[in-house]
């Protein structure tokens, strides 16, 4: 194999699969919805790809249009995703101490 980058990327990919499975393996049902929403925000990482594509300024108008919409979409995904998750989670609070 000559493509060192590919092998490294596949390594990173394989390890991330295992971490992704392990890290949420013991989540209570009550957190399924916030967790789905949180992971949903994390795949907004695609904004990074959109920035690279749009910022490279190659490929003329069509590429710029695609890149621009991708940046808008990615930002909605990130900003909306994290904010709505936080709104859900700030509601989870314990019973006030005096009532325990």
């Amino acid at each position: 194999m000559e493509d060192v980058a590919l092998v490294t990327q596949l390594t990173v990919f394989a390890l991330a699969v295992f971490v992704g499975f392990e890290v949420i393996s013991k989540v209570p049902t009550m957190l399924h919805t916030p967790l789905m929403s949180g992971t949903n925000a994390i795949h907004g990482i695609v904004i990074v790809g959109a920035i690279v594509v749009l910022g490279a300024d190659r490929g003329g108008t069509l590429a710029a249009v695609f890149g621009f919409i991708a940046v808008v979409f990615g930002t909605i995904n990130v900003v909306g995703g994290f904010l709505v998750t936080d709104r859900m989670l700030q509601m989870f609070r314990r019973r006030p101490a005096e009532k325990r």
Binding site: Q9, A16, V17, V19, G20, F21, L35, M36, T39, H43
Partner: peptide, 19 residues
């Protein structure tokens, strides 16, 4: 060729499948 995309995307892919 961007590691941040690979890692974050895969984390969501794997944990999302489990969920």
């Amino acid at each position: 060729g961007n590691d941040a995309l690979i890692i974050a995307g895969t984390l969501v892919g794997a944990s999302g499948t489990l969920l």
